[in-house]
Design a protein around this nucleic acid. Structure first.
Length: 255
DNA sequence: ATGGCAGGTTAGACCTGA
């Protein structure tokens, strides 16, 4: 089994790249998308189905939006957190056999003094409660997505420059560690990885060329799934495309 | 170098992203 997550920063722009990427990954079972930025009525459902995939999605105009593209249809689909009323479309969960996949586009927070920052922390608190509850129902669980959290300094190209900033602040990292404390594991860190491996690079200031990035896209796996996990990679090649997303896909392989 | 770029909205700047 292979699962992946990719913040595509507009599926309207990135659909050809997504279809090409899917075709290039024959072992893939499910791709979780974030920032589709499409109302459901404009979602390219037909094109994805014609390529041989099932799809479930929850979007809105301009911002946010998530989707599950999969070989088999998802069951028990959940849109957004059941314990947090939110008009921002940031979460979609589905079940594939015994495996529960939760796809999230975590709030960015903007800055520590923004009103979006307490929203981020409240959303995270609700997510932690939801995932804890889901784990009881689905021991085989994966939480994939754009977390908008760099969990450790080694996930930051220049930690000194980022001290005290959103995405690396102590409360955000504490929330990430609470997810770990529920019994989840960072699949990327199960394996030796090259230093300075990131999943997002700023479009500005030649961020990608300088490898000035952050690792903020993650695949967390529950105990039974981390035991099956044989690899986790970030597909940096996708960031080299013409008109790329600013995020690269993350792929976890389970035997 | 606190701006740089990219996408969306909507037809000129402005908002958001991270």
């Amino acid at each position: 089994m292979q699962i992946a997550t990719w913040n595509v920063n507009s599926l309207k722009v990135r659909l050809p790249q997504v279809l090409e990427w899917l075709a290039a990954h024959p072992q893939l079972d499910c791709l979780c998308l974030q920032e589709t930025k499409l109302e459901d009525i404009n979602f390219p459902e037909a094109a994805i189905r014609e390529a041989g995939w099932q799809v479930a999605f929850a979007g809105q105009k301009t911002y946010n939006g998530v989707a599950l593209i999969s070989r088999e249809p998802a069951t028990d689909i959940q849109i957004n957190l059941p314990n947090y009323s939110d008009h921002q479309m940031r979460l979609i969960a589905g079940t594939f056999g015994e495996v529960r996949l939760i796809c999230g586009y975590f709030p960015n927070g903007q800055s520590l003094d923004s009103e979006k920052y307490p929203y981020k922390l409240a959303w995270l608190e609700a997510l932690i409660a939801y995932v804890g509850d889901q784990l009881k129902q689905y021991p085989q669980l994966a939480l994939l997505g754009d977390y908008n959290i760099a969990p450790e300094d080694r996930d930051v190209h220049d930690p000194a420059k980022w001290v005290g900033q959103v995405l690396v602040s102590e409360p955000e990292r504490a929330a990430f560690n609470q997810l770990i404390s529920l019994g989840l594991h960072d699949s990327f860190r199960k394996f030796d990885q090259p230093e300075q491996t990131f999943s997002w690079w700023d479009y500005r200031a030649a961020g990608f060329r300088r490898n000035a990035g952050l690792r903020i896209d993650h695949i967390l796996l529950s105990d039974p799934l981390i035991a099956r996990c044989t690899g986790c990679v970030i597909d940096k090649e996708a960031r080299k495309a013409e008109r790329p997303s600013d995020h690269a896909p993350v792929i976890a392989t389970l035997d």
